[in-house]
Structure formats: structure tokens, C-alpha cells
């Protein structure tokens, strides 16, 4: 009985952590290039919607997932283009994209399906293990690419500053834009996976996971391994809150609501703690 509970908790943790990890590694690419991927949340949302729409239209789960990643990339092209090309403030541009994303989605949904609500796409629905495997391998490939490839090395140099990059003959802007695109595609795919898990798009279904992924980037010390660990921690918190919700019953309901808030509370605390630690580090060094 207990063993069963633990196993299901473990699986549930993995299922929650996998999309976070992929989005967070995308965010890590941007952070490593010296930029900030505020738009992870927006990219996840358009990724989820596009995956459902394309999955529904084509009847192919694979096409839906690919379209989701591409939609995330397009949104990040806006942010990256504004921030790198037009030298806009990356924070403001990212926030704008996050506000824009649900707007685009509901307009598109209204125009195409006559509803702003749930969009079912049975064809997109995939098995839990399939999704975890896809996300985990994409995460691993991305982590390897960032830490070991020639491209990843140069990306990190771009993150050290324009002058340092220029001295090494590296055009930092191009790498920063590429990093934004990577972040967009990764979080778009992560969003698509959310939709594939339930075979539908539900408005607001990302519910802040993009922000949590962004926090995981910093909580994980901007290293792929640390980021993955942070995502597992958040995954565990999500799984625990789902578990308690599952118990049902009158008495448990207020507890479950509290537990649901835990991942978000931890996110807020982590941000504060990280900021404080950074300030101390700067003052000391």
C-alpha cells in the first residue's frame, strides 16, 4: 500500500517536473547568454494551444507537438527581436509577450472554433511515459548542447559581456537572439506536452509554470544539473498537492488548497532568498 503510494508519487513527480525542466533549460540558455527569458510562461501557453489546434486538425500527435514548439519559438522571436535587435528592455518585452500570449490564444480560438474555452484534441493525447521520455531526452540533449557544444561555449562567452565576446571574435547579439529562440522552442514544446497529457487545451493551463521554470534557473545555480534538481523539487511539491487533493473529503479541502499554493510560495521564497544571497555576494566581492 505504502509502496504503491510512493511509486505513484514518484511518477507524478516526474510528470510534473519534466515540462518544468525543459522550459527551465531553455531559460538557462537565455541566462547563460546574458539575457533573461521572461516569456517562458507565454511561450508555454501558445505552445499548448497550438499543439491542441494542430493535433486536432491533422490528427497527428507528432505534428501537434512540433507545431507547439514552433509557436513558442515565434513568440520568443518577438521578445528576442525587440530586446536584441531593437535594444528594448528585455524584462518589459518579455512581460508584454506574456500578456500578449493569452490574448492571441483567445482571439485565435474564438475565430477558429467559436469558443474561448476548452479545446479538445484527442489525437494529441499521449501516454504519460511517452511524454516523460520525450521531455527528458529533449532536456538532456539541450543540457548537453549548452555545456559541451561549440555553440554552447560561445553562447556562454556572449553572456560574459559584449566587450569580452567581441575580443573573442564572437557576435554576442546573434547568440543572445539564438538563446531566446531556444528558450521559446523549449518552453513551447513543454507547453505542448501539458496539452498532450490531457488531450486538450484548457485556458490558463500553464498556471505559472513558466515563471516557476524561470525561478528554477536561478535556484539551480545556473547549472544544468542544479536546474534539473530544482525542477524535481518543484515537481515533488506539485505531486504532493495533487495527492492530498486526491484524498478528497470535506476536511481535506482547505488543506489541499493550502498545499496547492505551496509550489508558488516556495517560488516566491526562493526568489527572495536568491536575491538576498546575490546581494551579499556582491557586497562581499
Amino acid at each position: 500500500m505504502i509502496l504503491e503510494r510512493l511509486t505513484s508519487l514518484g511518477i507524478s513527480t516526474l510528470a510534473s517536473a519534466a515540462p518544468l525542466a525543459l522550459a527551465a533549460l531553455g531559460g538557462l540558455a537565455a541566462a547563460a547568454s546574458g539575457s533573461l527569458s521572461i516569456a517562458l510562461e507565454g511561450s508555454m501557453l501558445v505552445g499548448a494551444f497550438t499543439a491542441a489546434a494542430v493535433g486536432h486538425a491533422t490528427g497527428s500527435a507528432a505534428a501537434g507537438m512540433a507545431a507547439g514548439a514552433f509557436a513558442g519559438l515565434l513568440l520568443s522571436l518577438l521578445v528576442g527581436g525587440a530586446a536584441v535587435g531593437l535594444k528594448a528592455d528585455v524584462f518589459v518585452a518579455g512581460l508584454a509577450a506574456n500578456i500578449l500570449a493569452p490574448g492571441i490564444v483567445s482571439v485565435a480560438s474564438q475565430a477558429a472554433y467559436g469558443t474561448k474555452g476548452v479545446l479538445a484534441a484527442e489525437a494529441l493525447r499521449s501516454g504519460q511515459w511517452e511524454i516523460i521520455a520525450l521531455l527528458a531526452s529533449a532536456s538532456l540533449a539541450l543540457a548537453l548542447f549548452l555545456s559541451r557544444s561549440v555553440f554552447g561555449l560561445r553562447l556562454r562567452v556572449a553572456g560574459e559581456g559584449d566587450e569580452i565576446a567581441a575580443a573573442a571574435g564572437i557576435r554576442s547579439g546573434a547568440y543572445r537572439l539564438a538563446a531566446h529562440l531556444i528558450a521559446g522552442a523549449a518552453s513551447g514544446l513543454a507547453g505542448a506536452a501539458l496539452a498532450a497529457g490531457i488531450g486538450a487545451y484548457v485556458p490558463g493551463m500553464t498556471s505559472g509554470r513558466g515563471w516557476i521554470a524561470l525561478v528554477a534557473v536561478f535556484l539551480g545555480g545556473r547549472r544544468p544539473g542544479g536546474v534539473a534538481l530544482a525542477c524535481l523539487l518543484f515537481g515533488l511539491l506539485f505531486a504532493l498537492s495533487n495527492l492530498v487533493q486526491g484524498f478528497g473529503g470535506q476536511g481535506a479541502s482547505s488543506g489541499a488548497e493550502l498545499l496547492q499554493a505551496v509550489p508558488y510560495a516556495v517560488t516566491a521564497l526562493a526568489l527572495v532568498a536568491w536575491k538576498g544571497a546575490e546581494r551579499r555576494r556582491k557586497a562581499g566581492g
Binding site: L153, R154, R156, V157, E160, I164, A167, A168, I170
Partner: peptide
Amino acid sequence: LLAEGLTVAENLALG
């Protein structure tokens, strides 16, 4: 103007 987060060898290899 060396990249701080890289090793000496990586810095020399850049480009």
C-alpha cells in the same frame, strides 16, 4: 577581456 567562467584552455580555443 578573458571569459571568467571558462578555463584557460577554453579561452585560448575560442573562435
